[in-house]
Design a protein around this nucleic acid. Structure first.
Lengths: 154, 154
DNA sequence: CTTGACCTTACACCTTGCTATAAGGTATAG
DNA sequence: CTATACCTTATAGCAAGGTGTAAGGTCAAG
């Protein structure tokens, strides 16, 4: 199977497959005499594994670690569980953060609607925004969202 | 006031201030004879506005639009409200997405714990992951998380 | 007159996971 | 023989919001 066929079966682009190879997730594949990459069913499964792990929120780095453990003859399931549990905690934290943010934004919007910006003081840029945090009941913790990250599900 | 003093008062780096200038959020400042940027209280307020808007989830592009409206003599508050309402909807969608993801991850973890990977079939990479989506009760919608992104609160 | 804190510019780099493009070689159908 | 679909490599670029570094100029204190 050549790269385009593999990519089609998984539902990704051929470039993405080459990208995984360069990223160290796939071994150097065999080649036809003319240099085309040739993949076996095992490689197909490996790529499928990569996509599944990605959908579960694993980063390519983590997936690479897992695959290298596997290649070294180890069973990486303990690591997989640990990473998944960390992702769960991070997701919880991110949901909490987003909920706090949502509440704050919603409350600002409510105040803006009750007190429209007819009372624009001449030297404000947008008085709505300017009075919002001057109220200062909302102290965003230092670095609250430092590690926040989309979890990469495509 | 020079750039370092301005940055210190806002709590950002001097590079960030120059970055805002290059991004078109700040006007070309006055300069000392030796070329140092000199800022007035009005510029300080403008930078403070930028940070406040950013904390409310506005992107630098949006903030730039708002500031340009202001510079053109308009009152950008209607746009600000519209953007804020869009952010609210996006935040809601992102929270929903994360909750679905969390439920899925949590359920996978539960299954993994109940049925540990002692039954490792020889040709799997990590059987935990491999059996998870083969169950296939979980169809991630196409492009569900296309626009998902941390909302830039620092 | 030197040290050190501050300022200047320009450019590269970071994160992640790819996508796009250029410039070319290969395989197959008609 | 040619059209076209596929493959190769290398390189650049995106999103977003900056940070880091190099190489140098300026200013006050001691």
């Amino acid at each position: 199977m050549k790269i385009g066929e593999l990519a089609r079966q998984i539902g990704i682009s051929a470039q993405a497959v080459r990208f995984y190879e360069r990223a160290g997730l796939l071994h150097e594949p065999e080649r036809t005499p003319s240099g085309y990459r040739v993949y076996s069913a095992a490689e197909l499964k490996r790529v499928r594994f990569i996509r599944k792990a990605k959908e579960l929120g694993f980063s390519l780095t983590e997936i690479g670690d897992i695959l290298r453990m596997h290649d070294a003859g180890q069973v990486p399931c303990a690591q997989v569980m640990a990473i998944a549990e960390r992702h769960l905690r991070e997701t919880d934290a991110e949901i909490k953060r987003l909920r706090r943010f949502r509440a704050e934004l919603s409350s600002a919007l409510g105040r803006w609607k009750r007190t429209p910006a007819r009372a624009v003081t001449g030297n404000a840029i947008c008085e709505l925004i300017e009075r919002t945090i001057d109220d200062n009941h909302w102290k965003p913790g230092r670095g609250a969202a430092k590690h926040a990250r989309g979890n990469g599900r495509a």
